[in-house]
Design a protein around this nucleic acid. Structure first.
Lengths: 162, 162
DNA sequence: CGCTTCTTGCTGCGGCGCAACATTAAAATC
DNA sequence: GATTTTAATGTTGCGCCGCAGCAAGAAGCG
């Protein structure tokens, strides 16, 4: 798990071009497989989120798409809903913001978000053992868990070095 | 941990009167110990939250306090800030709402929230092993965690029985 | 082509959260 | 006790968040 976490947090000098285009390619494949339509609007929203690993609020997304016509908030939310339903985007609850998923995990897989308070980047790690343990223990307590939400704020290694 | 989770989720037929007054007493003790002032406003906000184990939004709190004068939102937020800083109230990020703390844990202790989607009640359990494991593994990944946020939505045992 | 379905646009609204400043109340100091 | 200092509350205002309800346009299908 340690390695998974390390591997997953975006390094400031990774090949982000490649990273983003891989995510787009995955989105296309995912939608094709599910017979879902990755429309221009949805693609634009996803690309806006893929421009960095920092979560964006809906209104920030609007600003970035505001080339000719400025889309209404509801338009963005609908695109985000679609992308989330298809596991392409996550909502960061503690930020009221959204990040593109670069992890290619199953739709209902548990994910741990590492949120750097310095650079704002968000890393996404498989929940793995810890999440399963949480589910198991809450189940043992008579609670029927849907899926745990785990967000960890802190300082990433790259920011700490500086 | 299993027992802790079970013990902590509020049963619909627990002695809530006692539960709430104990929390108030603890708040007074806590504030006295820290030389902090539990003003009428702050006490009222805490009591509003203690009226149930369901998280309340800031504007719901306003409605409940609206006896004579309707406090402004900022007033509530300031009271909530104070109560949170003193570990008397938690914010449920996934709900944009707040619950009174009935767990008497240390200020920076890790807490797991069990949120029943049926009755809306929130149980609070010591994060214990799972939270420590999360911190440890994120630290091993070079990440310096502040404190993990763990919220688990699902159905509580009392609602499931019905 | 006409129909159905999906997607997007438009209008409007309410909750959330706080900044900046003014006012009042409580502590501290003399 | 009067004054100064500090803390708490009130007032005004604003921007983001998230969606309901309805209308219009685009894509798929027989």
């Amino acid at each position: 798990m340690t390695n998974a976490l390390r591997a997953i947090f975006p390094s400031p000098d990774h090949d982000h071009e490649r990273c983003a285009s891989a995510a787009i390619a995955h989105a296309e494949a995912q939608c094709a497989a599910r017979a879902q339509r990755l429309t221009p609007m949805r693609r634009q929203v996803l690309q806006a989120l893929l421009s960095s690993h920092k979560p964006l609020g809906a209104y920030e997304i609007i600003d970035r798409l505001a080339q000719k016509t400025r889309p209404a908030p509801i338009t963005i939310y609908r695109a985000l809903d679609f992308l989330r339903e298809n596991g392409l985007v996550h909502r960061i609850e503690s930020r009221n913001a959204y990040v593109a998923c670069v992890h290619n995990h199953g739709g209902d897989d548990l994910v741990v978000f590492l949120i750097c308070e310095s650079c704002g980047a968000v890393g996404e790690a498989p929940g793995g053992a810890a999440a399963e343990a949480l589910k198991a223990s809450s189940r043992a307590a008579g609670f029927s868990p849907r899926s745990p939400l785990i967000e960890i704020a802190g300082i990433c290694s790259h920011c700490r070095k500086r």
